[in-house]
Design a protein around this nucleic acid. Structure first.
Length: 298
DNA sequence: ACGTATTTTCCTGATT
DNA sequence: TAATCAGGAAAATACG
């Protein structure tokens, strides 16, 4: 009855600050790559490792990244044609690329060629995105977790965008993924008489992908979320407010809270992107419609 | 300009 | 008591 929230609005983010390592906040801010020239997208972690040594998963990311960079809808190329590791990828000829990705082939071929030539770490990330003042913190944090030091940018707005492809993979709903190697363009289902499934491929990642990406890189995940059961896709938020802040950062929404983030998470139940997990607090489980989280996907 | 998908916000009420 | 969980409702956003 008397449920007036009079004093609640004072400082909703205090707790978050205590959870969120000082590193992140400032770091993201400056790493807001979304406003950068598309070219920057090429300077992601894939450059850290020579293409020849990429895992399947990395090939996967590179594909998405490159398509993103050129504003090409991920659904326009048959990803299954690229179910290979870096070594195999690098052995593909120009013609192979055309066969595998149609009109997008040349572009991919060129991108890969560029990467082969510009290999080697050092010319990217941290130093270019991180202001000196926070760099120390970033390094301090990162180093405490892993031997590397310049991948913290990972959570910046744009890099997460790498993972947009999930929807382009063998989708539960339609057979759109089995596209032959002739993707003339990115839309062809618009005027279908019966098109119940609409593909929305927003540039930014969706919340569940954002969460997934944090989980997928434990070495860069400073105890924000942890797997409860890797094989089953069950995970738990360790620092709920910190994750919310991070999400807010990505969406340029400084007032994001776990309360609101969790509401969005609950909407995923109906879509089976997430499954309910009984009584356990802060615990969620990926559902059948969530892609790219399994170890086998790597 | 409009429709759809996906949040974001807010809220009431139940649980832990 | 404070955090979470559950969803309804409606507004805001991003895209095509």
């Amino acid at each position: 009855m008397v449920r007036h929230n009079t004093c609640l609005m004072s400082m909703p983010s205090v707790s978050a600050n205590s959870q969120l390592p000082a590193t992140w906040s400032p770091h993201y801010t400056c790493a807001d790559v979304s406003t950068m020239a598309p070219g920057y997208t090429g300077r992601l972690w894939t450059q850290e490792t020579p293409p020849q040594f990429w895992s399947k998963f990395q090939v996967w990311e590179w594909l998405q990244q490159t398509l993103d960079m050129h504003q090409i809808d991920a659904t326009s190329i048959p990803f299954h044609n690229f179910d290979m590791d870096g070594r195999q990828l690098c052995s593909m000829s120009f013609q192979d690329f055309t066969r595998a990705a149609g009109s997008v082939g040349p572009l991919l071929y060129q991108s890969l060629t560029d990467l082969k030539w510009s290999g080697g770490a050092g010319q990217y990330t941290a130093e270019m995105f991180t202001p000196s003042e926070v760099k120390t913190e970033v390094e301090e944090f990162s180093c405490s977790l892993l031997p590397f030091k310049e991948e913290s940018y990972f959570y910046s707005t744009s890099p997460s965008d790498l993972y947009d492809m999930k929807q382009s993979f063998p989708t539960t709903t339609t057979g759109i993924s089995s596209i032959p190697a002739s993707p003339e363009s990115k839309r062809q289902q618009s005027r279908a008489p019966v098109a119940p499934v609409k593909r929305h491929n927003p540039r930014g990642t969706h919340l569940w992908e954002f969460i997934r990406d944090i989980l997928l890189h434990p070495e860069r995940n400073p105890g924000l979320i942890k797997w409860e059961d890797r094989a089953e896709g069950i995970f738990r938020f360790l620092k709920s407010e910190a994750v919310a802040q991070l999400w807010g950062k990505k969406k340029n929404n400084s007032s994001m809270t776990y309360e609101k983030l969790s509401r969005a998470m609950r909407y995923y139940y109906k879509r089976e992107i997430l499954e309910r997990v009984d009584g356990r607090r802060l615990v969620y489980k990926f559902g059948r419609n969530a892609r790219g989280w399994r170890e086998s996907d790597k």
